[in-house]
């Protein structure tokens, strides 16, 4: 199934109310980049879904010179199969805790919304919870309360507690996005870094379905 580029994915989820880290895209080293350092640079394109596995991510870039070098390298790493590419440069977000949120279509239950703990251990730990879209703010609050690692949501190593209201509105926004369109096959916000208590998506991947899902028609029946 086709995926949107990270840049297009970010725009889509940001419009739905998901906070995303500040970013710009460039297609050459000639373009001026106005962004606060440190930054992250990634190769970005519709056909590029697994950037980390291909080594297409540069973290902790702290100066314009370093960024120039990274952009050159990443553009050179693109293959013909990648199609049109750009380099996405985004502000590096600091935070010890990572969540994952997303949308997936279940063959039995239709569009579902997920929230869980993210990061490299996400799939091993599988501290996740699901609801069927659309969800209400009450549902979103219950999802947060259902995560097993509740202590990680409170004050943590000098960082404030996770902003519950922001996380709820992010989840409801994600649900409205998924319920409002019938061509979204999946959305991944992985990770959502908790920075100063606020969840911020530093990566987004939206998969577009070529056939319309049946779930979306149900979503319109009862509302929230």
């Amino acid at each position: 199934m086709p995926t949107l580029s990270e840049a297009d994915s970010r725009v889509l989820v940001a419009d739905a109310g998901v906070p995303v880290s500040a970013f710009v895209t460039v297609t050459s080293t000639e373009e001026p980049i106005d962004i606060d350092f440190p930054v992250v640079a990634k190769l970005c394109g519709d056909a590029i879904a697994h950037k980390s596995e291909r080594g297409l991510v540069r973290l902790g870039i702290s100066s314009p010179d370093e960024l120039q070098a990274a952009v050159t390298e990443l553009l050179a790493a693109a293959t013909p199969e990648d199609g049109d590419v750009s380099v996405l440069v985004s502000t590096m977000i600091e935070g010890r805790r990572e969540l994952i949120a997303g949308v997936t279509i279940d063959p039995q239950f239709g569009t579902t919304i997920m929230l869980g703990f993210g990061g490299i251990l996400a799939e091993a730990v599988a501290d996740v919870t699901f609801r069927l879209a659309p969800i209400t703010a009450v549902d979103a609050g219950e999802m947060i309360d259902e995560l097993a690692s509740q202590k990680l949501l409170g004050e943590f190593r000098g960082e404030p507690a996770v902003d519950r209201d922001q996380l709820i509105s992010l989840m409801v926004g994600l649900s409205e996005l998924a319920a409002g369109r019938d061509d979204i096959a999946s959305i991944d916000l992985n990770p959502l870094i908790i920075a100063d208590g606020k969840p911020i998506a530093v990566d987004a991947l939206v998969e577009i379905s070529t056939t319309k899902t049946s779930a979306a028609t149900i979503n319109t029946e009862k509302g929230a």
Partner: peptide, 17 residues
């Protein structure tokens, strides 16, 4: 799916939700 969300979405987890 190509997503992590999909990989975590076991039928049992969705049923529970």
């Amino acid at each position: 799916a190509a997503s992590h969300t999909g990989a975590l979405a076991s039928n049992d987890a969705i049923f529970s939700g």
